[in-house]
Amino acid sequence: MSDLHTELKESIIEQLNLEDMQPADIENNEALFGDGLGLDSIDALELIVLLEKDYGIKLTDPNQGKQIFNSINTMADFIEKHRTK
């Protein structure tokens, strides 16, 4: 697992108040929304801010989020390609 994957899991747990979870509880390819981790639309807005704050990536169309936030893997890929910090 890359550092980025772990870092992402840690910030998601912190940002979304997933108090009982450890980074190891989240699989890299597990769905973050719906039947997987069970995040919802409010979490999606939190994740958009996380991308901008931590990685300098500004999403102009909130609908883009759907693919990017599919799993930790898809998020990490997107961040690798677009990060400005």
Partner: peptide, 9 residues
């Protein structure tokens, strides 16, 4: 800038 909505909601 860069506010998250949870507390507002």
């Amino acid at each position: 800038q860069l506010l998250t909505p949870t507390s507002f909601i």
